[in-house]
Design a protein around this nucleic acid. Structure first.
Lengths: 213, 213
DNA sequence: GTCTATAGGAAGATAGAC
DNA sequence: GTCTATCTTCCTATAGAC
């Protein structure tokens, strides 16, 4: 086979591992399967990575970075505030629908990391970056307009990240796209109601939007 | 060891498997580990279950039923509408905080089911039952009072189920309980705003709560 | 740096005595 | 129904030639 510097081989093996894991699941993706997917022999794998764990670490950091880039692209500011929220969800949603296996993989890797002693920080980093992506968006929106938030930025960002995560997993399990237009509209409206132009920032106290009685 | 009818042995092994899987993760829980946890020999395992897959199927259905019972208990109606929502989340949340491993396991089992050919229906059943638990609550609330919903019941139930799921996973990964009071208040207020006393039901059209501009 | 060959171990499942 | 002992397979990782 063609010779190649170690760094590039590592990238090649990492990408192959992501493809194989997205297709077959983490549990079934052995080192042999990864080497075969990359078109190299098993020994090349162990020449580039000390262990399977070392490769998985590379996989998690790589896919987290991919994912965050995706979210940040999807969530760029648009003409109006509601457009931004709606178009952002739409772009993200299109990616979920067209690449369900990749998203599935992110959930599997989260749990792999949480169960593997010494890897917990990778799972935390993953979810912290989701929150940061949303925080970044909110800050952009605040800079462009004169926005006031009804809830603190950290709360809103975390809420958005958790909700996106939950909705995605729910879709991956249940499918049924038709049911989603309603849910997405509800969510979009809620977000818009939490981010308003021209009002005082919320004090860190009781929540807004109380229902009558 | 003491003799025992097959049905009871199956229950014993299923419970042992749940304990071991919650503690060590699904991937690391071998048939040997389950037999040891139950205090029986490996052959007893295969006497009661044709294969490891058969046991996992029993584990998934058992834990799903446990979980749904928990949610339905947490979500029983209270004095006022907002109390119901708030107390329900509180009860659910206390369980998550005190039994994180069990909740972790439910996520692992979802993915196991989705990746195992022929087991997809177990994952679907799991999430359908979450939605049904919320649907049940909403119907109870509607019966007791003269409630009108701003969104269709199916949409609201699915939204609640997905959001609970996302928030739980986010907590399992990031911990940080302090950050959660804000998020929960926001969510509680949102739900209350979607379920109002004395108003017309929402037509299946554009969402409420539009933000200015 | 890449290969073939293999060590070494752990997994799921079975055989057959009691 | 339960046990001990074992089969078979597949895994991660290494050895050593090229």
């Amino acid at each position: 086979m063609a010779r190649m510097p170690s760094a590039e081989r590592r990238r090649q093996l990492t990408e192959a591992a992501i493809r194989a894991m997205a297709r077959d699941g983490v549990a079934k993706t052995t080192t042999r399967a990864i080497a075969a997917e990359a078109g190299v022999s098993l020994s090349v794998f162990h020449y580039c990575f000390d262990s399977k764990q070392a490769l998985v670490e590379s996989v998690i950091t790589t896919i987290t970075d991919h994912y965050v880039t995706l979210v940040k692209e999807a969530l760029r500011p648009r003409a109006t505030l509601e457009d931004t929220v709606r178009a952002g969800f739409q772009a993200y949603w299109d990616h979920v629908r067209t690449h369900p296996d990749e998203h599935m993989l992110t959930y599997e890797l989260t749990q792999y990391a949480l169960r593997q002693p010494g890897f917990e920080h990778l799972a935390r980093r993953q979810h912290e970056m989701y929150g940061e992506a949303y925080t970044h968006l909110i800050e952009q929106l605040r800079a462009g307009r004169d926005l006031r938030l009804r809830v603190p930025v950290t709360v809103l960002a975390r809420y958005l990240a958790a909700m996106t995560d939950g909705l995605t997993l729910n879709y991956l399990v249940l499918g049924d796209e038709a049911a989603w237009t309603g849910v997405l509209d509800t969510v979009t409206a809620h977000i818009a109601s939490l981010v308003m132009a021209d009002g005082p920032d919320a004090a860190p106290g009781p929540p807004p939007d109380r229902a009558p009685g």
